[in-house]
Simulated scan of single mutants.
Amino acid sequence: MTGTEASARTIRTAVVGFGLSGSVFHAPLIAADPRYTLSMIATSNAGREAAAAAQYQDVKTVPDGQAVLEHANDVDLVVLGTPPATHYPLAKAALEAGLDVVVDKPFAVTSGQGQELVTLARQLGRVLTVFQNRRWDGDFLTLRKLLAADALGKVTRFESRFERWSPAIAKAWKARATAADGGGTLFDLGSHLIDQALQLFGPAAVVHAELKVRRSDERADDDVFLVLRHESGVISHLTMNMLCAQQAPRFRVLGSVGGFTKNGVDPQEPYIAAGGSPLDAEYGQEAPEWAGLLGRDGHLDALPTERGAYPEFYRLLADKILDGGTASDLPLPVDPTDAVESLKIIEQARELAASVR
């Protein structure tokens, strides 16, 4: 494909699922990038269908992923923002229909399923990636910059948390889902925390795991603590809790010459949920009072947070697809084999936690 042809083409995209994932993350990011055409939204919920039709008036709405595949000739890319248990069968069917695929996290409910999808995409020459959007959280980008500058020296301990106060389970599928269905906070929030830890400090093994159920209607887990030992020598403490009335720092990182502490949660999701656009000048900007603290030489300095950049995922994906897809040397926004490694960590954690009960 010539540069002119690539610039003239848009990636016709179908978003399957219009809950939080589809409505707040995927559809707004796709609609904001001129190299994509948001062609189709699939949802079986009448209220969500009405909301999708009102917000994206030129987009075709269909009831489910199967209906999207029936129109496979009209789309190039399928984005799966559906419950985890559906990821493997829908992604497999979309790849076999000749489509490129984005799968929301968790990639699948087993590492075996994830690896099978990676192998199938490679065999079929299709682009497959996983929406690990929190690689583009502003606080994570700030930490990556600190580590790249060796500002903390040799890191020894990494503490990372997602803690929320959610005494009731808001989504019906989450209330029904067991761990075998991809339910629970280890699959949900843990997919982000594990991915970030592996990205920062490399391969790891689980050396301690606590998986608890605190809410009466939870069928999997909602209070999880993992300790990972990385081959690099770093120890990661990962905490995810859905019944936490007082949150600890989002990050605390300790190194041989300094430390970094960061409170608060990246503002991109609530900004879009409140009606903002990724194209707004203030998108991704965190309020100055949420700046992290860099501790070195006996004093603390406020460190402004880098601008969050979820649109970068779809920018990199468009580069890849329009440059020739799997034939291109350009990187994927997220290598799906990374998501398989995260699933292996989840499996290790469940096995270890079960063995010490």
Rank of each mutant, 00 (worst) to 15 (best):
T4H: 13
A8L: 10
R9C: 13
V15K: 01
S21A: 15
V24H: 03
F25V: 00
F25H: 10
H26V: 01
I30E: 01
A31Q: 09
A46K: 14
G47I: 11
A51K: 12
A52F: 03
V62T: 11
P63V: 00
P63G: 05
A67F: 05
L69A: 08
H71E: 09
V75P: 11
L77N: 01
H87V: 08
A91Q: 07
A91K: 12
A93T: 05
A93F: 05
G98M: 00
V101Q: 08
A108Q: 07
G112T: 15
Q123W: 00
N133L: 14
G138A: 11
D139C: 02
F140A: 06
L147T: 04
A151V: 02
K154Y: 06
F158M: 02
S160E: 05
A177N: 08
A177G: 03
A180L: 08
L189G: 02
L193K: 05
I194K: 09
Q196I: 14
P203W: 01
V207S: 06
A209T: 09
V213W: 00
R215V: 10
S216P: 03
D222Y: 13
L226E: 11
S232P: 08
I235D: 02
C244A: 15
A248H: 04
P249Y: 04
R250N: 10
R250A: 11
F251G: 04
R252G: 12
T261A: 11
D266W: 05
P270S: 03
Y271K: 07
I272D: 03
I272N: 03
S277I: 09
E289W: 11
E289F: 06
A291G: 12
L293E: 15
E306M: 14
R307H: 08
R307V: 13
I321P: 03
L330Y: 01
D335G: 06
T337S: 10
A339F: 01
E341F: 04
E341H: 12
L343A: 11
Q348S: 10
L352Q: 11
L352N: 08
V356C: 00
